[in-house]
Design a protein around this nucleic acid. Structure first.
Lengths: 252, 252
DNA sequence: AATGGGTGTTGCATATGTTGCAACGAACTT
DNA sequence: AAGTTCGTTGCAACATATGCAACACCCATT
């Protein structure tokens, strides 16, 4: 809606791919060098862009700080955190919390496994949306037309032989998840890693977040992991209740 | 330099403090509501701002993704990571990697402690600059006038009785660190937590990053932690060598 | 040494894009 | 049903961002 701001913001994803000099930025933006310079300067003043010694620009430090503050202000995260830690204490595995936002699912909290073999993931990292247990839970709660539209739009990378292969399979899986109220990812993302997850609901019953427990085969088999399901579901329900409680007196 | 972009970007730190509605944003920005609306819309299109159900705006998901991509593109981090993990394997404690940028020191990587008692920190979080071992290392490498200017500008919160109290003490500490080539934080941030750190240098000898090992008193005493110093310094030197190697053929 | 291409940078006139206004609509209170 | 409050839209006036051309600078080449 605002051309100038639009151009300035387009620089960010561009720099996310790697550092670039003024000429490159101007070219890829389709504007004159002097224009690009002024936009970059403004971004720089706000700390979103950093100028390294070789004069090239890259993303700046304030971005981290902003993302940091943002995540700490999420209500669900705050409420859920202690419960996630408690769950980790009991089972020892990696625990994740994720939300859905604008076509993306992303982790907003994580408690690391106590076992030496850990799975790779990071807060803020977009989730493998077609296979992750938390993604299935969050998408399963959308309306049927929404689910169809998104399922069609997605890519279906075959991380492993057990990855969700296409929209039809994904929609079917979402229906199952919706029905049973929990989800799994059995080697669909990484051959040797299994997850089980459960939804966290707001006062109106809608899914506001999803949590999961992940563990590699070498630590526990899929069957053993599934025995934790009741515990995971109870934890999710506890968080749901607490979250509903605090948000019931809906502030305006 | 660009008024429109400047205004738009000023919205981000504003929303970092918590969600706000259109009126609040317009007021705190000092512009008309319609103007604020258009800026917010542009930010929204780029995913930097999210509109929650109650119509209020808060920071959006893409911020995380951007910060994520940015951190993964840092050369030092990539080179250092495996060494940090190896160090953690050997000693079990929390390992941090930090850089200095525009008056701030921030963590860009972290390997969690294997012990149940962990210290709180998060990648992207600005470091307690007056006490942290990594901060001392990074600042100690600046020129003398730079150090003086920064030391004067900083706040000196007394986290504990052993926190650095004022600019003079800080400058003195930096001189020591600069001389000896390593740094400590013995209960200066959290009474019960000690850290030891070492610098990572580029080909020209300048400090490009700093790493540290942190452990709470309940796990190891400060003396025991100090026995790890040679190991930490060796690791930092290994990383320095590898980093210098890759950046020697200075790209233009 | 001097020249040439490659950067990033500045001042300026033009016109493009942004602004505030006022009026509308929707949702919620009284 | 009238009265708030909030978000939204179209429009005309103005301020602001734009591209240009010229400059400054650094490095490599001759």
């Amino acid at each position: 809606m605002s051309q100038t701001v639009d151009r300035a913001l387009s620089i960010l994803p561009l720099l996310a791919q790697g550092p670039a000099d003024l000429g490159q930025v101007a070219e890829r933006l389709g504007v004159h060098k002097s224009t690009a310079l002024r936009l970059l300067r403004t971004l720089h003043e706000h700390g979103l862009v950093y100028r390294q010694e070789d004069q090239r620009y890259r993303l700046g430090a304030r971005l981290f700080a902003l993302a940091q503050e943002a995540v700490e202000n999420l209500d669900v995260r705050e409420i859920a955190h202690s419960h996630l830690v408690a769950l980790n204490d009991r089972c020892g595995h990696t625990v994740h919390l994720a939300v859905y936002e604008e076509q993306e699912v992303l982790y907003i909290d994580k408690v690391e496994s106590r076992y030496p073999v850990r799975m790779y993931s990071r807060i803020g990292k977009p989730v493998a949306i077609t296979v992750a247990a938390v993604a299935k839970l969050l998408l399963a709660d959308l309306t049927e037309p929404e689910r169809r539209v998104i399922a069609e739009k997605l890519d279906y990378p075959m991380y492993t032989s057990r990855s969700t292969p296409n929209p039809a399979a994904f929609l079917k899986e979402l229906a199952v998840v919706r029905e049973q109220g929990w989800a799994t990812d059995l080697g669909g993302h990484e051959e040797s890693i299994n997850c089980i997850g459960a939804p966290i609901r707001g006062a109106d019953g809608r899914v506001v977040a999803a949590m999961s427990v992940s563990a590699p085969n070498v630590v526990v088999t899929a069957e053993e992991l599934l025995t934790l399901l009741p515990l995971v579901r109870r934890t999710a329900e506890t968080i749901s209740r607490e979250y509903s409680g605090t948000t019931q007196p809906k502030k305006v």
